[in-house]
């Protein structure tokens, strides 16, 4: 594929994002014609209410979520030098939603507004520390995937256990909402709650970007560049935990965004790890926003979950990557 100028690519994906954002604001369950958003229309007030209270927060959250998950995936793949790394595959998202479940169903989240995202973030940190502990210095793909399977299984079991013990008798029925994410209950409050964590997480990973480049020739060469491996790993855990924790505490697990997006970006902007972060953020936002628009267009009497759409797109992509790795000898 032709390697385009990264700047051009960034501009194109930014424009695409703007177009998708406008579509996202105009499309939804409540069927308003474009003319009804004009002040002269009799339905103007109702339309404006839906636009500002329902569609705007949902659009903003989809953008934040896609950027956060895609940048997490790009940073994880870069740091671990593993093309299959992703918060969902590695069980980090799953742990974050375990944290959110404990916060909600045991009443902790009513103590203060920030407890919900904070619990999810702490659990995301915990899972990453566990992951790196299990895998150690061995960065072969298979160990990461097995460690991810282990973490996902553990968190799935603990989620069920937590919901069994939850004071609310209907809690167990909600487990599916946490394992397959959705944006349907997002309001401006959730956007405001998670945005600061996501912005800080993005800044930490952006600041850590050059260490990903150094690591592309392996840990020892990176150290010969003067890289402080411990510090870089700490920043990775901090940043990815903030992003994945904040997003998951509101939407539940949305897989595959972080896995897919960096692979689409790489052939276009070159495979230098630091260079794919910004384009990944933009394309990740486009992908989740497009998927969420699709969710609203397809109606089965019940709203489709965005987590389902991402899994339907993502699982074949994951398979494609595995086949690809086998062809090239893999690692």
């Amino acid at each position: 594929m032709r390697q385009n100028n990264p700047q051009n690519w960034t501009i194109v994906s930014f424009l695409l994002l703007a177009i998708l954002a406008i579509i996202s604001l105009l499309i939804g369950r409540a069927n308003f014609a474009f003319s009804e958003f004009l002040p002269s229309s009799p339905k103007y007030e109702a339309a404006l209410l839906v636009l500002l209270e329902v569609r705007l927060p949902r659009t903003l959250f989809a953008i934040l979520c896609g950027a956060a998950l895609a940048v997490s995936g790009a940073a994880l793949q870069g740091h671990l030098r593993n093309p299959l790394a992703d918060a969902g595959v590695l069980g980090i998202s799953s742990f974050a939603s375990l944290g959110a479940i404990i916060a909600i169903y045991f009443g902790l989240s009513s103590l203060a507004f920030w407890v919900l995202p904070a619990m999810a973030i702490v659990f995301a940190w915990l899972s990453m520390a566990l992951l790196l502990l299990i895998v150690g210095r061995d960065v072969t793909a298979i160990y990461f995937i097995l460690a991810g399977v282990l973490l996902s299984t553990i968190s799935g079991a603990l989620m069920t256990l937590a919901l069994n013990f939850a004071p609310n008798p209907y809690a167990i029925a909600e487990i599916i909402n946490w394992q397959i994410g959705s944006f349907s209950e997002v309001s401006m409050r959730e956007v405001a709650l998670t945005a600061p964590f996501i912005v800080i997480g993005l800044l930490i990973l952006a600041q850590n970007a050059k260490s990903l480049d150094a690591l592309s020739l392996g840990e020892e060469t990176a150290q010969s560049f003067g890289l402080n491996l411990q510090k870089s790993r700490r920043n990775l855990i901090l940043g990815v935990g903030l992003l994945v924790g904040a997003v998951t505490s509101i939407s539940g697990v949305i897989g595959f965004v972080g896995l897919i997006v960096p692979h689409i970006v790489r052939p276009w902007v070159g495979s230098v790890p630091s260079r794919i972060l910004l384009p990944s953020a933009l394309l990740g936002a486009c992908l989740t926003l497009a998927a969420d628009i699709l969710v609203r267009l397809v109606w089965f009497g019940n709203e489709l979950k965005i987590g389902v759409i991402m899994a339907i797109i993502g699982a074949p992509f994951f398979l494609h990557l595995l086949v690809q790795m086998r062809k090239t000898g893999g690692k």
Partner: peptide
């Protein structure tokens, strides 16, 4: 400091292979 040392030395490790399919100049 490690970075000051890094500009003095070049380490060509055994079996080093770039993990990403970047171009030669990069």
């Amino acid at each position: 400091t490690p970075t000051q040392l890094a500009v003095q030395i070049g380490y060509l490790g055994q079996n080093t292979k770039p993990e990403w399919n970047m171009n030669v100049e990069d």
